[in-house]
Computed example of a mutant assay.
Amino acid sequence: MSETTIDLTGSQKAAAFMLAVGENYGQAIWEALSDDEIKELSQHMSNLGSVNAEDVENIFVEFASKVSTVGSLNGSYESTERLLRKMLPADRVGTIMDEIRGPAGRTMWDKLGNVNEVVLASYLKNEYPQTVAVVLQKIKAEHAARVLSVLPEDFSMEVIMRMLRMEAVQKDILDKVEQTLRIEFMNNLARTSRRDSHETIAEIFNFLDRSSEARFLSALEDRNRDSAEKIRALMFTFEDLANLDPQGVQTLLRNVDKDKLALGMKGASDTLRDLFFSNMSERAAKILREDMEAMGPVRLRDVDEAQMEMVSKAKDLAESGEILLSDNKGEDELVY
Rank of each mutant, 00 (worst) to 15 (best):
I6C: 03
I6W: 14
T9M: 10
G10E: 15
A20W: 00
A20G: 06
V21E: 08
Y25N: 10
Y25P: 08
G26M: 10
A28P: 07
W30K: 06
L33I: 03
D35A: 10
E37N: 11
E37M: 07
E37T: 08
L41T: 09
S42D: 01
M45T: 12
N47R: 09
L48K: 04
G49K: 04
N52L: 02
N52P: 08
D55V: 00
I59T: 02
F60D: 10
E62R: 05
F63T: 07
V70C: 12
S72M: 15
N74K: 08
G75M: 04
T80K: 09
L83V: 02
L83D: 06
L83H: 04
L83Q: 10
L84A: 08
R85I: 11
R85T: 12
L88C: 09
L88K: 09
P89Q: 01
P89T: 09
P89D: 02
A90Q: 15
M97N: 09
I100F: 00
A104G: 06
T107Y: 01
W109S: 06
L112I: 05
V115F: 01
E117I: 11
L124M: 11
E127H: 13
Q130E: 13
T131R: 09
I139D: 02
A144G: 11
V147H: 07
S149H: 03
P152E: 09
P152S: 00
E153T: 15
F155V: 08
M157Q: 14
I160S: 05
M161L: 07
R162N: 05
R165S: 15
E167Y: 01
A168L: 13
A168F: 09
I173E: 14
D175S: 14
D175L: 11
D175N: 14
K176L: 11
T180M: 15
R182Y: 07
M186R: 01
L189M: 10
S193F: 13
D196F: 03
D196T: 08
H198V: 11
T200R: 06
I201Q: 13
I204H: 05
N206T: 03
S212Y: 02
A219H: 12
A219E: 11
N224P: 05
R225W: 03
S227K: 11
S227V: 10
E229D: 12
A233V: 06
L234S: 10
T237K: 09
T237Q: 06
D240P: 01
L241S: 00
A242D: 11
G248E: 00
L252M: 04
L252F: 01
L252S: 03
A262F: 02
M265L: 09
T271A: 11
D274M: 10
F276E: 08
A284E: 13
K286F: 05
L288G: 07
E290T: 08
E290L: 04
D291I: 01
M292I: 15
A294F: 04
M295H: 04
G296E: 04
P297N: 03
V303T: 04
D304N: 10
M310I: 01
S312T: 13
A314F: 05
A314E: 07
D316G: 07
E322K: 12
I323D: 00
L324Q: 03
S326A: 00
G330A: 02
G330W: 05
G330Y: 06
E331H: 12
E333S: 03
